[in-house]
Write a protein that binds this DNA or RNA. Structure first.
Length: 540
RNA sequence: GGGCCCAUAGCUCAAUUGGUUAGAGCCCCCGGCUCAUAACCGGGUUGUUCCUGGUUCGAGUCCAGGUGGGCCUACCA
């Protein structure tokens, strides 16, 4: 049964250059999409760029470029960053594209037809510190902002409004009916309590700048950037459109089994409140889940302009390779929680888990035992000759595969990797306890073959289980055990479940270690090349 | 001011939703092995589960208060 899966990243504001925060979101979405493809589900992975707004207009002027020229230049580094990180998106939406602009206007009209848009003068209290309007309820006595404890001002402007106030109840009902709409749960609580306060109509047009999508039939106004930006998720698919007009939209929006928006915690409200409200108004299907992940700090410090520590992913990919960086992102921090990106931890995990754990497991069997004693071929074995130790490892493989799949479904990447590494560890223990090198010396050929097959097949399982996170390394691993690269195919579930998929007789191809261990000299030179201070307290 | 979440080993985190003696990885120490990338395997040390009180046969888990930390609290990121 086809279960179309749609996963998106936020569209990144092209005012910035790509940094590891962007990379983190994008890698997560890529892992989700690769997992879904492995399961045989039709999958669409969207990322893209938000290219409108006042800041862009200003930046372009500073650079003496037309806004379009400016965003075209800024878009290039994002495209190449995702290519370097092997984030294989199906779509790359840019909000300045003609298709997107049409979609925004189409959605606007649908909301307008519903009677949810009106033009009005708006006047309310405004906190300069917050740069936002405040309701009377939010103010402290004496008209003070609750956050800044400073007086608020009365401000008036003319704009189009969306009747968000009409959606307080529908949204709360929707949340009630979809208890996993927002993840993690704690974030969902924040969203609910925000809505429970009662929603106010939302200003959805601006006259203060021009660089945006014109409001239909009123060129004075441009569409509020968030309404513009959020529409990307359907405009990229050709929507909104009646059935039969836009095939991608029909498959991955209207009738998708799952629609997951991966977002940073800072933009949760727009996705969990405004976006579903807009869609409810327009009569369009609402996504399945909004997943708000946490922030990365860098070596314990917050990323900020003043510290100038926005790490671009490029040099890290160059130093460690895309797969290693992807692995680190997914392994180090629980998805949904804040975490730290630390060069030291990255190297520790590389050496401890990738090199010593997985890499060495493959190497000791493929490049050594099988090569020397079995002429490099996958042995022929019978399932009736299984011993307890073999059955035990097979059971562990099945348990790990099952667990990893469950965690990947739930976007609990760190737990999925945890489960996989329990299998790596079990396999290393198995090799130690069965002592294949002794079996070879004793001439216990049949037992030796059984043991080698069990480990090789375990490696085959791991090459699939880890594929969403490390596609290249997994294919390298597969090449070494004589398997072709994984080719996910719609309708075919490749996730390992049946033991014995590795064909006897095929030739393994021992090659260089998958993850060569870094010695202290190499570590230091990598860190120096990346400009990381190795003398300080972080480099213990 | 209002609300949400968190606090468990030196570090990062678990603990099947109230059930035996609170676990795992990393780090450190000791031992074994020697097929392998100075890799691997085994063993060991470390706890006032933030504090005070309460409910209960039984509390890391539930309740109250406190302390400390993070987050949300209406647009242009």
């Amino acid at each position: 049964m086809a279960r179309p899966y749609y996963v998106t990243t936020p569209i990144y504001y092209v005012n910035d250059r790509p940094h590891i925060g962007h990379a983190y979101s994008t890698v997560a979405a890529d892992v989700v999409s690769r997992y879904q493809r492995l399961r045989g589900n039709p999958t669409y992975f969207l990322t893209g760029l938000d290219e409108h707004g006042l800041k862009i207009e200003r930046r372009a002027k500073e650079e003496r470029l037309a806004p379009q020229e400016f965003v075209d230049r800024m878009a290039a580094p994002f495209r190449s960053a995702w290519e370097e990180l092997d984030c294989a998106h199906d779509g790359f939406i840019r909000t300045t594209s003609a298709e997107h602009r049409q979609s925004v206007q189409a959605l606007w009209k649908m909301m307008e037809d519903r009677g949810d848009i009106y033009l009005d003068d708006y006047e309310d209290w405004y906190c300069v510190g917050c740069e936002s309007f405040k309701t009377v309820k939010e103010l402290l006595e004496g008209n003070l902002c609750a956050i800044h404890r400073a007086p608020v001002e009365r401000i008036k402007e003319r704009s189009y409004f969306f009747r968000l106030s009409n959606y307080t109840k529908p949204l709360l009902d929707f949340y009630e009916a979809h208890p996993e709409f927002v993840q993690p749960d704690a974030r969902f609580n924040e969203v609910k309590s925000f809505v429970q306060e009662g929603l106010r109509d939302l200003s959805i047009s601006r006259t203060s700048f021009r660089w945006g999508v014109p409001v239909p039939d009123d060129e004075e106004h441009v569409v509020y950037v968030w309404l513009d930006a959020l529409t990307n998720y359907i405009s990229a698919l050709g929507g909104p459109a009646p059935e039969g007009v836009a095939p991608l939209y029909d498959e991955f929006w209207t009738s998708a089994h799952t629609i997951t928006h991966i977002v940073g915690k800072d933009i949760l409200r727009f996705h969990a409140v405004y976006w579903p409200a807009f869609l409810l108004s327009a009569g369009v299907r609402v996504p399945s889940q909004i997943w708000a992940h946490g922030w990365l700090t860098v070596n314990g410090e917050k990323m900020s302009k003043s510290l100038g520590n926005f790490l671009p992913p490029g040099p890290l990919v160059e130093a460690f390779g895309a797969d290693v960086l992807r692995y680190y992102f997914m392994r180090e921090v629980g998805f949904g929680q804040d975490g730290d990106f630390s060069h030291r931890n990255l190297i520790n995990r590389y050496n401890g888990e990738l090199a010593n754990g997985l890499g060495n497991l493959m190497n000791r069997i493929v490049a050594s035992i099988v090569k020397k004693n079995l002429d490099g071929r996958v042995p022929r074995v019978g399932l009736d000759a299984l011993e307890d130790a073999d059955r035990d490892l097979i059971d562990k493989a099945k348990a790990a595969s099952h667990e990893a799949a469950q965690h990947l479904e739930a976007l609990a990447f760190h737990r999925a990797l945890d489960a996989s590494w329990e299998l790596v560890s079990a396999a290393n223990k198995y090799v130690d306890s069965t002592e294949p090198w002794k079996l070879a010396k004793q001439g216990a050929q049949q037992r030796l073959e059984q043991v080698c097959y069990t480990v090789l097949e375990t490696l085959r399982w791991l090459s699939i289980m880890l594929f969403p996170v490390m596609p290249n390394k997994c294919n390298e691993l597969r090449a070494q055990i004589g398997m072709p690269p994984l080719l996910p195919t719609e309708g075919v579930d490749l996730w390992p479940s049946a033991w014995g998929g590795l064909r006897p007789g095929i030739e393994t191809r021992a090659a260089t270690p998958l993850f060569p261990r870094l010695d202290q000299l190499q570590e230091r030179s990598i860190l120096e090349r990346l400009g990381v201070d190795t003398s300080g307290s972080h480099a213990k």
